[in-house]
């Protein structure tokens, strides 16, 4: 299942008010490493469906969100919990590395 697309309008409901931790993948079509990491994120989302939600923000379509969260490198992976930004990562990483970095949210 492809990750849900989040917009400025839905960010509050989908991310900040979410009961589960949410990993937001800031990405763009023209970013090769974003395309490389997308299937890895899909796999993590499927495997840990009850623990974490993974959504996408297209920075071309949502420049205001990207600016608000200080994105200057993509893929940028930001984890929100209880409405707070609690973890930031940048760059495509292999699945075992991402799972290890996200371990506190996947347990």
């Amino acid at each position: 299942m492809a990750a849900k697309n989040v917009t400025t309008a839905s960010f509050q409901a989908d991310v900040l008010n979410n009961a589960k931790p949410v990993l937001v993948d800031f990405w763009a079509e023209w970013c090769g490493p974003c395309r490389q990491v997308a299937p890895v994120l899909d796999a993590i989302a499927a495997e840990y469906a009850g623990k974490i939600e993974i959504v996408k923000v297209n920075v071309d379509e949502e420049p205001a969100l990207a600016q608000q969260y200080g994105i200057v490198s993509i893929p940028a992976l930001q984890v929100f919990q209880g409405g707070e930004l609690v973890k930031q990562m940048v760059g495509a990483k292999p699945k075992p590395v991402l799972v290890a970095e996200l371990s506190e949210f996947l347990a």
Binding site: A28, W30, C31, G32, P33, C34, V59, D60, A66, I71, V72, S73, I74, P75
Partner: peptide
């Protein structure tokens, strides 16, 4: 990665 990040500058 200029192609990834140039957009933000």
């Amino acid at each position: 990665c200029a192609t990834c990040d140039g957009f933000f500058f």
